[in-house]
Amino acid sequence: MSTELTKRRESLMKAESRQKLLAFSSLLVMIIIFSLASPNFATFSNFVGILLSTAVVGILATGVTFIIITGGIDLSIGTVMTFCSVIAGVMITFWGLPVWVGVIGAVLSGMMAGLINGLLISKLRLPAFIATLGMQMIAAGLNLVISGSRPIYFLHEPRFRLIAMGTLFGIPYSVFLFFGLAIVASIVLGRTVFGRYTYSIGSNEEATRLSGINVDRWKIGVYVLGGFFYGVAGVVMASRLNSAQPALGVGYELEAIAAVVIGGASLSGGSGTILGTIIGAFIMSVLTNGLRILSIPQEWQTVVIGSIVILAVYTDIIRRRKD
């Protein structure tokens, strides 16, 4: 029995690394094709642009990866992110508080939204889809109410803009922040008890509960962690635009979820990695960037990205069927 077992395991491991390889190599192929197609693609400044534009979605996607691995979903990502930008704007511009206080306030409000999501889902047993859809709309409304439906500019605080746009070796800080957070998230997911229970809840929640684990508490933790990432993304976003744009937000949740799914996570839970999510986020931003450089109209860019999501998930299904 055990030899047969090991064989199956080997083939499975091969399949798993094959998938990562597939995603990564399609990213490389894309980069090569765009480089050949346009001299404007493979330039330092364009690469920096890609990195910068991946940072926000990448941070959001990293946060929601945990949630998706537990078998949950979060539709409030985009508007909660904006909510955090608005809070930063209120604290820094309206109240004149120091930048660091505004940043902490923004991140804490993201975590607070996550906490509410988590409580609704675990304690009141609302489906995650519904709870976070509600949160999406609540946050969207609050953004307009709090800001008076007008953008809040950070004109008095030039240092705020440095968070995203200040550079080291020509690379913006926000890119370092993104990679730093991704590495930490990867360790948390792969090596800690928190990560283990994230997978375990997504794979079989009941079994996890019966093993004596307080599933509710860990689930809430996962949503709070997600909120932390949305808060950071909100700060980066506001800093990049040098303003909190209250009408922004809807649409980001789907981009973030798409990145996670392209990266190989299953919406039914139990599988997914941070590395996969990052590759997924880059596939989307490289594609958007490349198509724009090739002067393909923006409307068509969305069509292409939608097709890529379907294609990515379909190849994953085929791969699983073969095993």
């Binding site: 283990r196 375990s200 997504g202 794979s203 079989n204 996890t208 684990i213 139990g270 599988s271």
Partner: peptide, 18 residues
């Protein structure tokens, strides 16, 4: 069965008291 399918044998045995 109350096992977690995506985890390994060892991870299942020690779940909750790793």
């Amino acid at each position: 069965f109350n096992l977690v399918p995506h985890l390994t044998v060892a991870q299942n045995i020690f779940i909750g008291r790793e």
